[in-house]
Amino acid sequence: MISILTATIKGVLRDKVFHGILFIACLFLFIPVASTFSLRQVVQLAVTLSLSLISFLLLLLAVFLGGTSLWKDMDRRYTHSVLGGTPVSRTSYLLGKFSGVSLFIIMTALLLGIIGFAAIWSTSIVYPPDRPLLWLNILCAVFFDSLKYILLVAVAFLLSTVSTSFFLPIFGTIATFLAGSATQEVYDYFQTEQGMQLPAGIKSTALFFYYLLPNFSAFDLKANAIYSIPLDSGGLLLTFVYTVVYVAILLTSASLLFVKRELL
């Protein structure tokens, strides 16, 4: 499994997608200047832009690496040669690939986080904020963003195991991300007076998807990071456990499907 993980990371580093993302990361250089457009919250805008850019880049990585990593190997028949000629089991292979992409996402988040921290710090030197920055909150926001995208990678892997082209893993992952980011808003809407009046069928369908799809709003700690709002440690722990359980379910399902899949 370790050798698959190492090979995955090496493969990602050679990938053009990664180079493109590094190029987009140059936008961090403009954050201190762009933040000065704010009327009253220059540093807060620097944090907003840094976290948004990190989140966006991690989303691209999760969708493209998660969606193509496994599929590409199958398409090139690399999976068949590895699994046929070595004692590596299909489950180990899948977990190795997943761990490789996940580790790479964490490493990228760390790198982007350091660059983002530098952009925020340099802005805060010139424009001291009204409220002191809570660096731990910013760190937590980046970390939970990484967890969110690792969960998304798990979704992409599950879709890759049943797909014969890259369309389903890529677009299915994007659709899951969009839906998973909006489910909490929809759920909250159903709790309002207006939402209560909607037909029961619509509400139960929405509720079904609310529980089925990953709830990405739990990972959004941007407000806590930007405005130095205290974090709820209990909530963070719950979110962490939620991620572990959800990823485990996805990977187990993916493994079951992958074992039965015809690779020729």
Binding site: L49, F56, E185, F216, A223
Partner: peptide, 14 residues
């Protein structure tokens, strides 16, 4: 807008 902005609502507001 909140639903369309996904996890970028702070950046969209800004």
């Amino acid at each position: 807008v909140k639903m369309l902005a996904f996890d970028q609502r702070h950046a969209v507001a800004a």
